[in-house]
Design a binder for these strands. Structure first.
Lengths: 144, 144
DNA sequence: CGAGAATCGTTGGGAGTCCCAACGGTAGGG
DNA sequence: CCCTACCGTTGGGACTCCCAACGATTCTCG
């Protein structure tokens, strides 16, 4: 259709950026209906998976800067979705936990995010999606 | 290794974001040696592919906002890599073209970007890379 | 036990990405 | 001729990602 841009289109980094931008936009739009941002959802999900967890470990597990994590947690705590409790075993740490409301909102976010990802992956068949995810995990540097 | 985050890791949008961030960081580091940013390289490459081209079409072809394109072109023109000439056929348009120096720098950027992408795709075999690129193109919404 | 290194949460700062609205100038269609 | 549409430009703003430093606390090792 549009003029081909062979040089730049042949770069995986370029295509990854475009695809990620598309995915981000779709998910952001879906989460906006819940009044949530991408990182709010991610942090909420990580807290649910890790249980009561210190902020530093939380940030490391999702690759979020501690500085930004403070802001996200402030928002989530103000909204009553998480609580920060002092860790009696290590007074430097805050044990972050989900509230019941947090669990509820998390489920809404997960539904919205899944639907958005379905739109994102629509061009691919089920087996292709699985294939794609397998390759993507190895590229993302999320493991190891 | 680290605690699994099944919920968030199962989202293609999340993995795409992580992979794209990794790719961006690698390419940015490689281009920094040439004193270039990602968009500088992309614009330079697009100008080379499209020949003398108006800014609006340039921006559309690479998905860059006209506002940001102005800044990039200003930088490139100041560095003597591109020239903006008034289009005699349509006085609204600027015909953007590469200079000889621009072509030289573009080649350096392409080499650097290719090497960075090689590092990015290192976990995948040659055939897997091809497979991945095919799927990625359809996800990115770059075609059609 | 005591001094130094390391980690915790927090604050501050900054570059880069992505998108929207509005302006004067120019071109095309009715 | 007038209205619409496009051009390049300017201004603004939200979000992402990363680095440096601080006081408080814990750990390590002599």
């Amino acid at each position: 259709m549009s003029a081909p841009l062979p040089a730049i289109r042949a770069l995986p980094s370029w295509l990854l950026g475009r695809a990620a931008a598309r995915g981000r936009a779709l998910v952001a739009e879906a989460l906006a209906a819940e009044g949530m941002k991408m990182w709010h959802h991610v942090v909420l999900s990580a807290v649910a998976d890790l249980g009561p967890v210190a902020q530093a470990e939380l940030g490391r597990s999702i690759g979020l800067d501690p500085k930004d994590l403070v802001g996200v947690l402030n928002d989530l705590q103000t909204s009553g979705l998480v609580v920060r409790a002092p860790d009696p075993g290590d007074r430097r740490k805050n044990a972050v936990s989900l509230t019941a409301e947090g669990e509820r909102v998390l489920r809404s976010c997960e539904t919205a995010a899944l639907e958005a990802n379905d739109v994102l992956m629509a061009p691919l068949s089920a087996s292709e999606r699985e294939q794609f995810m397998g390759l993507l995990i190895r590229i993302s540097g999320t493991d190891g």
